[in-house]
Amino acid sequence: MNIFRFLGDMSHILSFVILLLKITQGKSAAGISLRTQELYMIVFCSRYLDLFWNFSSLYNSFLKVVFIACSSAIVYIIRFKSPQKDTWNPELDNFPIQYLIGPCAVAGLLINQDWTPFEMIWAFSIYLEAVAILPQLFLLQKQGEVENLTSHYVAALGAYRGLYLMNWVYRYFTEDDYLQRIVWFAGTVQTGLYIDFFYHYYQSKRGGLSRPVKLP
């Protein structure tokens, strides 16, 4: 465990907290992509299947359960709970996620570590996580202006990815035996998707002002 990875995980947890607060306290899921949340639920449920046979630390196992629970709770609230379910707009949040899931499933089958079923599922989850934010980014783009909490949510997720990138660099240079080629590739793609958002986030938050983020 190094400081980059720890802060990355904390930033990831913070993103869940922000989103859960927003939809439970604010009673609205407006501006939040249910599609992205469903993709995250698929990502965590498939990657953390190994909860049943892999144990590396209590920290890891605990957070795996937390991630599955939080993403499931978010999907449940937006899809089934009143009044949140009435604030979700399927016409705005209509990104065709089958075009993300399909290619990621094929990539998982073809490009994985050692051709076992779990390695294929695991690689699929890594590829899908890389692109899971796209429906959310497209939704923000359509709306043009992004509510503060929503922008903090996306920023926390982006920070998590950036910190994980630093964690990989740190581990590569400090550990004798450490490679994660699939994760590095997908993680770099994933982090890249946030660059444009961060540019606009910085523009609207600089100078201590808390204006909503405006996207062109």
Partner: peptide, 10 residues
């Protein structure tokens, strides 16, 4: 020569 790491990250 480095090897693929065990799955110890989230």
């Amino acid at each position: 020569q480095k090897n693929e790491a065990p799955k110890d990250e989230l």
